[in-house]
Design a protein around this nucleic acid. Structure first.
Length: 493
RNA sequence: GGUCCGAUGGCCGAGUGGCUAGGCUCAGCUCUGCAAAAGCUGCUACAGCGGUUCGAAUCCGCUUCGGACCUCCA
């Protein structure tokens, strides 16, 4: 595709991307609730929007990327007597709620760094925007779409739906929702089961609470995203993202609140939803007990893991599937990703050492670059991009084997394309570099060079026993010796 | 129960009316002292049954199976 197209959850169509205010793009993504460690499923969603962010930047858009931290403890259930998650954790671990928040925010950041997921432009917190949330509730009340009961304020969904469509994003019909709403205890304050809280009154034992015109309490879960996206991106902005599981009710409520507060007809132009990471066909979730932490993944210390996988292997694995499809986790798939990635990295190295050939080139690098771009333009299709990059790998290896001719400018151009698409867009870093920094120094390098030279001598003397012994011993230390016509070389695994 | 989505070769995964990705695995070959790497070749799939069409994995219908959401969830 010649221009970027995005699958819009709101219209259920693939649409040409047209920012409201080019070259500026506003993107809001629902971030984590920081009351526990993030698992791999969470990582997938943030990775999806990392790719969006990176690619928009490659297209020279000036992106303001806002991703929130939910640090208000929302209730564990939809009942008035439910305990809030952060408060619960704080009580159990005998910590201040904000200590819990800090701890898991730090963890979240560490995990994002581990997977090379870029920081957003603004990372606002719910607790930092209590004032704005209260102001927003006032507006919604003034517009007649909310009501107060005993110090709590609820959004009036039925009233709202009389004036505006409700349920467009998630494809719900308000009457169907009515029929399927389960009877829950403690909802007596709501006039209608579909209504949701904008502000909840808190009793004195509730740890996180703030004063408001309606008394002591805390904001409803959906409100912070409406308020913070409006504050930093405006009443109308380009892209809103999040996990598929947030579509309903969270995003539906967000839309209603935005419209309810600002009377803007359509707050977001493009809604994007990342699909779930599954394990044995089931959604990875804490409640299923099938989630891994990044640490378990890297060390392989989990009953579902055969071995550990590097962060870049995991990143690459996730990008081998399209963000809008479910992706099933398996050891086999991870291993395939590991090998594929290593092939790609090796080709990058080969490329840097390639001797240019004179005369005509036999690989169309311009078309290659265009196909990489076209893949991403088609709704960020990373699997197609990866498949295309492997065509480049084939050309590079072919050139090394003397079957493909690459001129000096072809090599430069290929390097540029790999740099742009593999490193900058897919965000795949070379893991070798970081390892070498830790375990390598000029001394060991000199020693290894010496050993390889000695082995070459042994080979020249047809002393295979010595040559093989050297290779075996080095192999045990994770160093691979490769022989070719031009001589021997060593690499760390 | 309601709403929606999916079912692709040994595995993972794109594609979505004709040209039938890619990675991994497996087998054979080339290269090599042997390996490794790389290259070449082979393995031709679209859940089932009907229908539309000159032509369908791709559109329509039904069936079977799986999943997500409907409650906090990325």
């Amino acid at each position: 595709m010649e221009a970027l197209h995005i699958s819009n959850s709101l219209t259920r169509r693939k649409e040409k991307f047209q920012p409201l205010n080019p070259p500026f793009v506003g993107m809001y993504v629902c971030g984590p609730t920081v009351y526990s460690n993030v698992h791999l499923g969470n990582v997938r969603t943030f990775l999806t929007f990392d790719i969006v962010y990176r690619y928009l930047q490659l297209l020279n858009f000036k992106v303001r990327y806002v991703r929130n931290i939910t640090d208000v403890g929302h209730l564990t259930g939809d009942t008035d007597d439910g305990e809030d998650k952060i408060g619960k954790k704080a009580r159990l671990e005998n910590l201040e709620p904000m200590e819990v928040v800090q701890q898991y925010t730090n963890d979240f950041h560490d995990v994002m760094d581990l997977f090379n997921i870029l920081r957003p432009s603004i990372e606002p917190t719910a607790t930092g925007h209590i004032v704005e949330q209260i102001e927003s509730i006032k507006k919604i009340l003034a517009n007649g779409y909310a009501y107060e009961v005993n110090g709590s304020v609820y959004f009036n969904v039925r009233k709202f739906s009389e004036d505006h469509p409700y349920g467009e994003l998630s494809g719900r019909k308000i009457d169907e929702l009515m029929n399927n709403t389960r009877e829950l205890d403690g909802q007596s304050e709501k006039r209608d089961p579909l209504d949701f809280a904008l502000w909840k009154a808190a009793n004195s034992s509730h740890l996180m609470q703030w004063p408001s015109p309606w008394g002591q309490g805390f904001p409803g879960w959906h409100l912070e995203c409406s308020v913070m996206s409006t504050k930093y991106l405006g009443e109308k902005f380009d892209i809103h993202g999040g996990g598929m599981d947030l579509k309903f009710p969270h995003h539906e409520c967000e839309i209603a609140q935005n419209i309810g507060a600002t009377r803007c007809d359509c707050p977001v132009n493009y809604w994007m939803h990342g699909n779930m990471l599954t394990v044995n066909g089931r959604k990875m979730a804490k409640s299923e007990g099938n989630g891994f932490t990044p640490e378990e993944l890297v060390t392989g210390n989990h009953k579902l893991l055969d071995k550990g996988y590097s962060p870049m292997t995991v990143r690459f694995f996730m990008l081998m599937g399209h963000y809008a499809s479910t992706l099933d986790f398996s050891n086999e798939a991870l291993q395939a990703a590991e090998k594929g990635l290593s092939k790609l990295e090796k080709a990058m190295e080969t490329l840097s050492k390639l001797n240019p050939s004179a005369g005509e080139g036999t690989f169309d690098v311009e078309s290659f670059e265009n196909r990489c771009r076209a893949a991403m333009n088609d709704d960020f299709n990373t699997p197609i991009l990866i498949a295309t990059l492997f065509e480049g790998v084939k050309a590079i290896n072919g050139a090394a084997a003397g079957l493909v001719a690459l001129r000096a400018e072809d090599i430069t151009s290929l390097q540029k394309t790999f740099q742009s698409f593999l490193r900058e867009v897919l965000g795949i870093q070379s893991e070798k570099g970081s390892q070498e920094k830790q375990s390598n120094n000029s001394e060991s390098e000199a020693l290894l060079d010496l050993i390889v030279t000695m082995r070459t001598k042994a080979k020249a003397n047809k002393d295979w026993a010595t040559a093989d012994k050297i290779r075996d011993v080095l192999s045990a230390y994770g160093i691979t010796i490769q022989d070719s016509k031009d001589g021997s070389s060593w690499t760390r695994n």
